[in-house]
Amino acid sequence: MSAAGPSPVPLLELRGISKQFSSRLDIAARIAARLGAGAGPQTVHALDGVDLSVGAGEVVGLVGESGCGKSTLGRIVARILEPSRGERRWKDRPYSDYESPASRAERLAVQMVFQDPFASLNPRMRIVDVIGEAPVVHGLVPARERDRYVAEVMERVGLDASLAKRFPHQFSGGQRSRIGIARALAVNPRFLVCDEAVAALDVSIQAQVLNLFIRLREEFGLTYLFISHDLGVVRHLSDRVVIMYLGRIVESADSQEVFARPNHPYTQALLAEIPRLEATKRAYIPIKGEIPSPLAPPGGCHFHPRCPHAMPRCQAEAPRLREIAPGHLSACHLNDTP
């Protein structure tokens, strides 16, 4: 069971991806454990059986609150992390088929744009090295043509190529975002994982960078996995929206469908919380509680302690993600009760 993409063979497919992070015990805790006193290693279940497919040219928005596993999922897609369980497929073949030197271009086809335009650039590297290092190392561009190539990439993202010899601290936040995008574009990717790529920017600069993403998609036929907590941004950019809560996908549907007919109570709550620009003073009706710790997620449906519709079944049994309308998936027991 996987989220249906628009094309028959998805560009990227994730099947049953799980990821656990275990803390390593220090010496005192190991001795305590040996003596039967302390607890074992703590395990965070960041992702729990996630299925996702993304078609070529599609923009999928991945939404959720902090700690829901959306960044971990992005990093697994971009090969920065290995999943604990599950299979990643690219063009209908497993990731492991692309390990040979001959498949380098396919390996480079997934690139990542990071959130923090300050922390994700090495402060001691000039921009020409930040952008130019990867294409030279991977043999896409001969070293002597690097500067010309970097200038070309910089112009693609709307940066003045004459600034290539400068260091990151000499740029503004919006320009640094463009540098991060240029670095990803420099190895000719087909798929960009954008992890909160506009979250740190001012409103007027955010609009400029979002427009850049829209233009690059049209120019280069890029596919995006756009990770964000900002539903307004996701709604604007995405063809399909995937909502995560505590390591699981709770809802996935066409963008307009999600915003018009949210099915899962968590999605409904999230949509109700988006601050809107309508200038009507409104009473905030918040959903109760906070996102539980992923160290000890609640049993059954993870959302049941905060859910206004929770039933006894929700505590006992995790709802499966299933199709409730063509292309609209939701994981909620309410859909079984007539």
Binding site: A207, V233, H236, R276
Partner: peptide, 24 residues
């Protein structure tokens, strides 16, 4: 006006956003 127009929900979905050129 530029600030309000550049908010995504004030724009048609998928179209380029109204943007204020330049920077502060």
């Amino acid at each position: 006006r530029g600030l309000i127009d550049s908010v995504p929900s004030r724009n048609e979905r998928g179209r380029p956003l109204h943007q204020i050129p330049g920077m502060t």
